[in-house]
Design a protein around this nucleic acid. Structure first.
Lengths: 104, 104
DNA sequence: TATACTTACTTACATAAAGTAAGTTAATTA
DNA sequence: TAATTAACTTACTTTATGTAAGTAAGTATA
């Protein structure tokens, strides 16, 4: 409430802090994926995945592409904005490798 | 559910993904702080702050120090494990400066 | 000396977010 | 024709968070 923190940083955190968001982005850094691929790879429920993908699209982090084949194929891809989160996620991974026990 | 993601990374994300956690760590990167200082600087409720600080202590990211003055003073400080999250947060901030509009 | 205030919480209750499971539409395969 | 898949949505339950009040120990103020 004191607003001592940079508002852009707070905004960034409010995006990344939502459950599943970071994991979704992490998955998409490997390349475009379909709805059910993301769903099964990170274990998020369809209900929330659908919600998050819409949020991320609205934020310009993810792009939804419809390929009009039969059957129709829908793919989710990171935009440039989304891809540029890679260095941040890389740092988190680096931290995890040093400090997180593999046991838990 | 498929467990295609590195478990250490998932653990790291599960810590950072909890609401307020990253902001608490960000605050503590500035130096030790008291309960009510964190509370008012980021706008988290006491109820959740109390919960988060306990979690972070259990994870070895935050240390709680009691200074036996009168009145007693309690301070929360990052451990080495906690401090080494700085590069990750720095990257998020860098991303925010480039990609997040100041308006919202 | 009584009253109000501060810190660091906890407790009880209300609301918001996430999980679960079933349903939908359109097309595909057995 | 029946079952299956993809990409969702809907209804309902459980969990997480917010709000507000309460507590204990001490301090300052009238």
């Amino acid at each position: 409430m004191d607003q001592t923190i940079c508002p852009r940083f707070e905004k960034a955190i409010s995006i990344m802090n939502k459950r599943w968001t970071t994991l979704i982005i992490f998955q998409l850094l490997e390349g475009s994926q379909r709805f059910c691929e993301i769903e099964s790879s990170i274990g998020v429920s369809g209900r929330v995945l659908s919600e998050r993908l819409k949020d991320l699209e609205k934020e310009g982090i993810v792009k939804r592409s419809v390929y009009d084949e039969t059957p129709v194929r829908i793919e989710y891809t990171l935009t440039k904005k989304g891809e540029s989160l890679k260095p941040a996620l890389d740092q988190i991974q680096k931290w995890a490798e040093t400090w997180v026990e593999p046991s838990e």
